[in-house]
Amino acid sequence: MADGVAPADVYKTLATKEGVDRAFKKLDEIKPNIVWWSSGNQPMQLLGSGEVAMTTSYNGRIRGANAENKRDFKIMWAGNILNIDSWVILKGSPNKDNAVKLLEYLGRTDRQVEWPAKLGYGVGSVAAQAALPADVAATLPTAPEHIAAGITVDANFWVQNIDALNERFAAWAAK
C-alpha cells in the first residue's frame, strides 16, 4: 500500500512474483529506519521510549497504553489491516456443550457491545457495531470508514503463501 497499490488490489498484486518483488523493493527503501518488534506490547515500549516515531500496532494496545500508562498515542487508520479472530472447539473436547453455550453467549449483541469499552477491539457482529454509542463506534477497526480505509486479512492467500513469503522475508530481514 505504501507503494501506491489500492487496498483492494493488495492480495492480487502479492499473488504475482512481480508484486512480491515490488513489495520487497519498497521494504528495501525503508529498511534502514525500521526497528522490528515481535510481541504485542513492544511497539508501545518503543514508541513510549522515543526509540521510534511511528509504529504498527494492535489498536487495543494503543488504547491500553493511553488508558493505563497515560500516553497520548494517535492512530492513523489509512492502510489498516483488519484481522478477524476465531474461537475454536477442539475435536473431542470434554465440555463441548458448554463451549457451544459460551459461543452463543459471546455472540449475543447485548454482550458484544460491552467489549469495546474494555478492550478497544472491534466487534464480530454488524448488529453490535450499529448498537454501539457513536463515540465508541468511531474508535473501532470495525467502524465502516476504517474498514473502507484498509484491507481485511485474506486467510486463503496466507495459507498458500505464508511459508514461501516467510522464508524470503527472514532472508531479507537478516541481511
Partner: peptide, 9 residues
C-alpha cells in the same frame, strides 16, 4: 525478559 521487551518501566 518479557518486561524488558514489552514494558520497560
Amino acid at each position: 525478559l518479557s518486561g524488558t521487551r514489552e514494558n520497560l518501566d
